[in-house]
Design a protein around this nucleic acid. Structure first.
Length: 224
DNA sequence: AAGTGATCATAG
DNA sequence: CTATGATCACTT
């Protein structure tokens, strides 16, 4: 670990590093870290996120916590097209499917992770070689009251259905800004859930994702 | 073209 | 398996 890859000690230091990184291509950044650039992301879907994490000094590990716990910041790279529009939904966290009685919004992982998010836009057009894709200006975002209210409403509706044993009936169409979708190795992955009789059963793991129009509005707000 | 459901790599 | 990092790829 060199000096630049140590964890930043303040929000200002983190933002400075993120801003200094803006304008570079993924190829240039990978070169600085002596990391090889994959031809495509089919088998390296988390490659861009990992690279940015290294550069900004995010704490390693797969804990269900914010990337910069000491700063209260979650890092999210977001693929955008030539117009700055997000190309993909944004994964937030896994959804709890059992032992959720009494779980409140304020206690949820979604609420905690979205307290403060450092968005790092990165070109994600599939026809552009990964090494040539450029990193954009970072955006430090904290949801407004209205934004949190929208996310909370979706979260509560989805969690209610899960608690009622209706997880199998939930599709990505539920929720205005936050949706529930599969999140696992494949459709055969299983985890515990509640069935329609209120008993423990098995289902495909799910995760919460922010829909594109919502993240697009966040980016537009800062770019305008 | 947009949106939903499926999938990939890795660490513990 | 769970959780991290997400994008792929098929359907509508």
């Amino acid at each position: 670990m060199n000096i630049r890859s140590r964890s930043p000690k303040s929000i200002n230091e983190l933002m400075q590093r993120a801003q200094d990184m803006a304008g570079l291509t993924l190829g240039q950044l990978a070169s600085l870290h002596n990391i090889a650039v994959p031809r495509d992301l089919r088998r390296d879907k988390g490659w861009v996120g990992q690279l940015i994490e290294h550069e900004l000094g995010a704490l390693a590990g797969s804990k269900p916590e914010q990337d910069f716990l000491h700063l209260g910041v979650e890092l999210k790279t977001i693929p955008i097209d030539v117009n700055g529009k997000p190309l993909e939904t944004t994964y937030v966290t896994v959804a709890p499917l059992v032992n959720i009685q009494g779980l409140t919004w304020e206690q949820s992982l979604v609420y905690h992770k979205l307290q403060r998010v450092l968005w790092v836009p990165v070109e994600g057009m599939r026809d552009k070689p990964i090494a040539q894709r450029r990193i954009g200006m970072p955006i430090l975002w904290t949801p407004s009251e209205d934004e949190f209210a929208m996310i909370r409403q979706d979260w509560e509706e989805i969690m209610e259905l899960i608690a009622l044993g209706k997880v199998e009936q939930i599709t990505a169409r539920h929720g205005e800004v936050l949706q529930l979708r599969p999140k696992g190795a494949n459709s055969r992955s299983v985890t515990q859930s509640i069935n329609n009789e209120g008993l423990i059963s098995q289902t495909n793991p799910r995760g919460f994702y922010l829909k594109i129009p919502f993240t697009q509005s966040i980016l537009n707000h800062y770019f305008n």
